[in-house]
């Protein structure tokens, strides 16, 4: 798949924003926090979410019709994502208002938890847009929703650590929760890459044309002389040529460096510089990870053009273990 920068930016930025909303809701539930901190965290989270949402409309042919995408939530994960994303603004903004006017703690907690639930739901819907596509085996994997949720939580935790340090507030156990989530995300990503390498797709040029009845087909004559929409959208090879090097970079910046810095940030003396560097490193690493998520994914339509079988994977609902 050809990576669209607007979608990479949207999924990483809004993932971080919703992650921060989720972590903030748990922090608010956990303890009473200064209003200035909650409002700043909300502003940072909603800015990331909003920039991401606006950026996601850049790749549309008709951004002015984007509102129509809210109508088909019965069948479409993209529509569900839009509905959940907008719905999340309600309790998030109300939470800000409640904190600003000093509303009772029960009200604040109720709004925070509603925000957290809708933030997680939005990220889940985003992941299901990809995981529901049978045509792209690299995405049709039950680990994909887990990864999106874990990476969102990880981004949120790193941002929350940064904000706590900036406000000179104690982190309590947050750095260690972060370490656990980073390790889990890295583990799921490793399992995902291993599954990708191991499994074989059921689709081939033989099944795509039905010519497996006769023997082994190969491309003799391309259907057109120039690149068409399909080749532009799905015929992306650069990512695969450099995949192993880019994967190592993604692992280092998204998981390795943030892991060490999150642990270091438990020491008050290093809290702010370590938390700041962790956010920067993770941002770079996650953009790289998301870029690979697109660049390494193969679509079945490329079989007709002599492409390799889609990167194999287990189907989402049926496998366990």
């Amino acid at each position: 798949m050809t990576p669209a920068f607007s979608i990479i930016f949207f999924t990483t930025a809004s993932g971080a924003g919703y992650g921060l909303l989720f972590v903030l809701s748990l922090l608010v539930f956990d303890r009473a926090l200064p209003a200035a901190f909650v409002l700043t965290a909300l502003a940072v989270a909603l800015t990331l979410v909003s920039i991401g949402l606006v950026s996601s409309t850049f790749h549309l042919g008709h951004p002015e019709r984007a509102w129509r995408a809210l109508t088909q939530w019965r069948s479409s994960w993209l529509s569900r994502e839009g509905v959940a994303a907008l719905a999340c603004y309600g309790p998030a903004l109300a939470l800000g208002a409640a904190v600003a006017v000093g509303a009772p703690r029960e009200t604040v907690i109720a709004l925070a938890l509603a925000t957290g639930v809708l933030a997680a739901a939005t990220v889940y819907c985003t992941s299901m847009i990809y995981a529901s596509l049978k045509t792209i085996a690299a995405w049709h994997d039950r680990r994909v929703p887990a990864l999106y949720l874990l990476l969102g939580a990880m981004s949120g935790l790193l941002l929350a650590r940064f904000l706590l340090a900036a406000f000179a507030l104690p982190a309590h156990g947050l750095p260690w929760v972060t370490v656990a989530i980073v390790l889990s995300a890295a583990q799921v990503k490793r399992a995902y890459w291993r599954a990708q390498a191991e499994h074989r797709s059921a689709s081939s040029l033989g099944t795509a044309t039905g010519l497996d009845r006769l023997g082994r087909p190969r491309v003799l004559q391309p259907a057109h002389t120039e690149r068409n929409f399909l080749l532009k959208e799905f015929g992306f090879e650069v990512g695969r040529r450099h995949a192993s090097r880019l994967r190592r970079l993604a692992i280092a910046f998204a998981f390795g460096v943030p892991l060490a810095l999150a642990a270091l940030s438990a020491l008050p003396a290093f809290a702010l510089p370590a938390a700041t560097a962790a956010v920067v490193s993770a941002a770079f690493g996650l953009v790289l990870e998301r870029w690979l998520f697109f660049a390494e994914a193969r679509h079945t339509v490329m079989l007709y053009y002599g492409g390799a079988a889609p990167a194999p994977s287990r189907s989402v609902p049926t496998t366990g273990g």
């Binding site: 042919g61 479409s76 045509t135 007709y304």
Partner: peptide, 26 residues
């Protein structure tokens, strides 16, 4: 008249049956 040109349908089709019109944006 309703299509926003998000291209997701072309991702969902295994057969490459849909092609995006860059001029019309649909």
């Amino acid at each position: 008249d309703k299509c926003i040109g998000c291209k997701l349908c072309s991702w969902a089709c295994p057969y490459g049956a849909r092609e995006y019109d860059e001029d019309a944006g649909v």
